[in-house]
Write a protein that binds this DNA or RNA. Structure first.
Lengths: 193, 193
DNA sequence: GTACGACAGGGAACGTCGTTCCGTTTTGGC
DNA sequence: GCCAAAACGGAACGACGTTCCCTGTCGTAC
């Protein structure tokens, strides 16, 4: 809640801040090669620190994953209103925004799978993505529904989960193209008749 | 390949057969309560046997899962041609058959997730489901495409994976209804125009 | 009915992983 | 420079999948 130093944040020690940055870089690198479920020890080794240091900075794996991808998630969230303003139709904006999200997900090895995992410890990750993206999706959905372009009986939450699910395993399988299936799903949203 | 005793199967010892049956029952019971990824020790304990006994009968977890659900998968596969014969249209048959598959998946705690897992050891499970169901799905898909009811540029493999993905986490989340999303996906298949 | 060899079982043992604990080192204010 | 608090590293612990090895049991041959 208090990321900025303007608040009552007691400002961490210099080595702590240095390690946090080092850890973020190491995690990002390991995530690329081994996926977001890479062993904690691997990340620690890559960063040249002990495992406890990871837990001290990022109590759960979710916190680490969030920190690594926060910028991209924010960018995706902010792209929603922009697309709505610049697209020919709300349905087109929805389609483009979802494509952005899918492109993000399928390039992050294992992220989509972990997003749907019900293991405790990923709760925070789940919550972050939903809190940040569901409102944006809801806005696009509502605009398209108001324009009469799509059916209006689907919650943004459900759509986001469906899209996330479709992205699972989309890497490392050339026969499976998540983008196409998501397009099909969005096509299915079109108002019948 | 040689399940029946008519082949060269050397017929197992009586206690071995007894334990295999016991294990199947125990696994089925544990799968219901703890999901298909329940610890091996739990299943062994439930069956009253040692862990090695499980591995002797079912070398990989996939073998055990396949054995437990084989009957239902076979029933689903056999329902395909029947539905094609009895439905008003090929597209309707496809929709109903997929509903059967979805109903099967969402009632098996964690099965959908494991079906998409790329961990080695689940390869056999993956292969079994695909070998058994993709041809059936392909037949329905082809019939619907031939009747001009749906677009014809989607492989049965891709559709099955998409449907399986959509079923992940469909239990234990009242806000997520996999059946509805799958219906949307199938609706998206309809020939545009 | 008994003896023997092969088959099958049980549980301890090993390696991996997430997580926690504790003795040691580093930092920053005095 | 000194010291308390903060941070660190790696060992330790528990859960889990998997393998190993010794023991027990079954089926057969006599």
């Amino acid at each position: 809640m208090n990321d900025r130093d303007g608040g009552a944040a007691p400002r961490k020690r210099a080595d702590a801040r240095r390690n946090e940055r080092t850890l973020l870089d190491a995690a990002a690198a390991v995530f690329v090669t081994s996926g977001v479920e890479a062993p904690v020890r691997d990340i620690a080794a890559r960063a040249g620190v002990g495992v406890a240091t990871i837990y001290r900075h990022f109590p759960t794996r979710a916190d680490l994953i969030i920190a690594v991808y926060r910028h991209q998630v924010e960018a995706c969230a902010e792209a929603g209103p922009a697309l709505l303003a610049s697209s020919a139709s709300a349905h087109a904006a929805l389609g483009r925004w979802i494509n952005l999200f899918v492109d993000f997900l399928v390039t992050k090895h294992g992220l989509a799978a972990v997003l749907q995992s019900d293991e405790p410890g990923f709760d925070a990750l789940h919550a972050y993505f939903l809190d940040r993206l569901v409102p944006v999706c809801g806005q696009l959905l509502q605009a398209a529904a108001a324009a009469g372009e799509i059916r209006s009986d689907l919650e943004a939450y459900e759509l986001m989960r469906g899209v996330g699910n479709l992205c699972i395993g989309a890497d490392n399988d050339p026969r499976y193209d998540a983008r196409r299936l998501v397009e099909l799903l969005v096509a299915g949203l079109r108002r019948p008749r």
